[in-house]
Design a protein around this nucleic acid. Structure first.
Lengths: 114, 114
DNA sequence: CTCCTACATATCCATCTGGTTATATAACCT
DNA sequence: AGGTTATATAACCAGATGGATATGTAGGAG
């Protein structure tokens, strides 16, 4: 049983360089397993494994289409991640602002720089 | 020797739930190891390990301050990651726009306005 | 100096991960 | 049906990862 929640799985999926390359490729349009395998030296099963990870993270999706099963990006899935990072940045810059405000009000030296 | 580049290490650092929690805590202000350890049930050495990972990823920094060594966020380090994600989203939405344009121009509509 | 505190480092262990090759399945093509 | 193509699954392996406990080190308090 895996109790990790959505963002765990998504961030973990992004942690691998090959998978990020696959995502970048898919951002330019859907592609089959064979096409995705081309640029890499690793075996086809290895790619299939990566695709499974990405799909279970909800980052990509696939449809059976005849003999092949092309993958495509699920861009909505990215927002959770960017939101987290943006939230972190905002949290920090806010607290930094507070710090600056604090320092400005507390600093005994009325002048600085130069 | 580790040939992984910056974003590999950063994304890998984010892949762990505990480390993300540490970052979230640090976003609210700097904190010592003991303070960072408090909310977790894991041992202090485990926290130190996580902090090392985060520091080597350039996500946090520390200064020796007397007996303690408080950590703080290095927010610039986040931009590389958000940039990557934003780039991916943009790439996708652009290609989606192109697809829409393509479909609009190719559709064998029985009628088209001049 | 001696003890305590805050943290780092060493060693060990179980589990996870990313890769491999071999094999299975399913669709398409004579 | 028999052969090829596209992809998935199984079994296996080496190395990375996250945790533990034990110990080291350096600064502050007595």
């Amino acid at each position: 049983m895996d109790i990790r929640e959505a963002s765990d799985v998504k961030f973990a999926a992004l942690a691998d360089r090959t998978r990020r390359a696959i995502l970048a490729r898919l951002a330019m349009g859907e592609a089959t397993v064979a096409e995705l395998n081309k640029p890499f030296q690793i075996s086809q099963p290895a790619i299939s494994k990566h695709l499974r990870v990405l799909e279970e993270a909800g980052l990509i999706e696939s449809v059976k289409l005849g003999q092949s099963r092309p993958r495509r990006l699920r861009p909505q899935a990215l927002t959770e991640l960017t939101d987290w990072l943006n939230g972190l940045q905002k949290l920090w810059s806010d607290s930094f602002d507070r710090l600056e405000t604090f320092l400005a009000s507390e600093t005994p030296s009325p002048k600085k720089e130069d």
